[in-house]
Design a protein around this nucleic acid. Structure first.
Lengths: 143, 143
DNA sequence: AACTCACTTGCAAGTCATTTGCAACAAGAC
DNA sequence: GTCTTGTTGCAAATGACTTGCAAGTGAGTT
């Protein structure tokens, strides 16, 4: 049992503790999400989950994604002009760069920016509940 | 003729130069957008435009907003869990804070953050095409 | 001012991603 | 194993836009 499976065990237990049944479909999605190194959208997750649960319906995928999101197990990202994409929430906080040519998503983090954001909000009398920062980028062509 | 009307004149001329007819409905929307101090969505702009052009259809509003956006005359913002909101593009670049309790949108800008963003992208071999930074905030309750 | 005609509009119908009603199912507590 | 109540699959519904089409209209041309 590797690291990955272990964390799935933990997640399923957390769900059970929250009174949420761990059905085959939910377990499949949990597993697919844990193994995903990218940021798949619902139809793609559906496709991947079908390997474990043939016949799983897309609506169940959507429903499960919402459930998992509200349990804080996964995160939903709505990038420009695209359908929602998901990722496991086990990772540390980070923001995203989206390659506008390929659609590839690159993660990054900057404490300095986060600090500045908090500062700016505080100056105006606000505290940050959460934020969203996306850089739409293109590979530098300085060949 | 005040400042505001002048800029509308300029915008309409720019549109005409781009081969885009300045119809009553487009002129009305241009005016409504120039006068808007907030960030209205399409139905709200439709409501406001009806004062000048009774019977203007919502689809025309949507169509016009897309046209104006592609002409760079206005900007479209897609905040979390809400329909698109628009603002005149005449202002300087800025980002947004959204009060999660009221939906109010506050504008802000930070050269330091922008510089850091460019730096981060450059380090990874990218250049920023455009970005989106939204702070979802709540009024500090340190009464 | 009248003419022309490609660009626009209003309306109804269509998209698309996502959500929901409902009857058949199936976790998991007992 | 039995039972309850949360879940699922399917089809239909949503919500925010978008689009096809026939009628209408800017604005350059005469």
């Amino acid at each position: 049992m590797n690291e990955r499976m272990k964390s799935i065990e933990e997640m399923t237990q957390a769900l059970r503790d929250a009174g949420i049944r761990v059905t085959r479909q939910r377990a499949a999605l949990l597993s697919v999400l844990a193994e995903a190194g990218d940021h798949p959208d619902a139809p793609e997750l559906h496709r991947r989950a079908e390997a474990a649960v043939p016949g799983i319906s897309l609506s169940t995928v959507y429903r499960t994604l919402s459930t998992l999101e509200s349990q804080g197990v996964i995160q939903r990202h709505q990038f420009e002009g695209a359908s929602a994409r998901f990722e496991s929430a086990e990772t540390d906080h980070h923001d995203h760069m989206i390659d506008v040519d390929t659609g590839e998503v690159i993660e990054f983090a900057s404490d300095r920016i986060e600090r500045l954001q908090a500062e700016i909000a505080a100056e105006l009398g606000y505290e940050i509940v959460h934020h969203r920062m996306e850089l739409y980028v293109r590979k530098t062509s300085d060949s």
